[in-house]
Amino acid sequence: MLGCARLAILQQLEYRFNLIADTVIQPVIVGLVELTLWAAFFHSTGNQTLNGFSREYYLSYAVWAAFVSRISTSWMYESMMIEDIENGTVNSILVRPISFYEYYLGQFFGYKVFTTLLSLGAPVAVCLFADLPLVISRLPLTLGLVFFYLLLVHTMSVAIASLGFFFSRIHHITVAKNITLWMLTGELFPLDLAPEPFRSILIALPFSSAVYRPVGYLTGRLELNTITEGFLSISLGLLVATVVATALWNAGRRRYSGTGA
């Protein structure tokens, strides 16, 4: 696993411009878009609070949502897994004493830890500079929850990639999944703003641990219980995803004809 994590870091370092675009440019642009939206909302309504929280809470939420969602979303590795199965590159993993799950999990975590450390300074600096709400002592637990959530993300990615054994082209499933998660995670807006019963459902789902729970906790909007509930909810989601991913992988392997070699 550590060897695979190292592989991911080596590969990232090989392409410096791409790495900067991924770790700095992309979250900065997303953050600016969300900041503008919230600033425009408060400016046009003339309100100083929304749902009991001030404008600053929402601006801080926007900054951290952009940063945390970059960690908790899987575009690149899911696409790589799909491509490997579609074009037969998976052969080079299947013939070696390492599982596909483990091989990509190592790389995925290596990449996420490395890029998180590289880009963490930016949102902290913005919050300190603009005096936005931030409880810095909560950062380790926040990141702990997000990285635990990555296990679920990865397992879902393996399940989706396994569909590549059955269908020739499935890239758009990743697009559809990530757009759905954009709303379900709370990246778009804090989930407690949704009307009931959607509010309770959205918060209960494990996906709220991708953005809403960690960012709410870090910015002081939510308390410790949200994190413990988050771990529990992810564990249940992980159980379901593991069953689905294992079934799809095993069935897919039986069909696989070793494409491309």
Binding site: L2, L7, T89, R96
Partner: peptide, 25 residues
């Protein structure tokens, strides 16, 4: 597989072998 690269395209072979050594213990 002569028609399919099994080492890592973006890495120098020496780095690939280091990873293979870990995989094969």
């Amino acid at each position: 597989l002569g028609q399919k690269a099994q080492l890592w395209w973006d890495l120098a072979p020496a780095d690939s072998y280091e990873l293979l050594a870990k995989i094969y213990e």
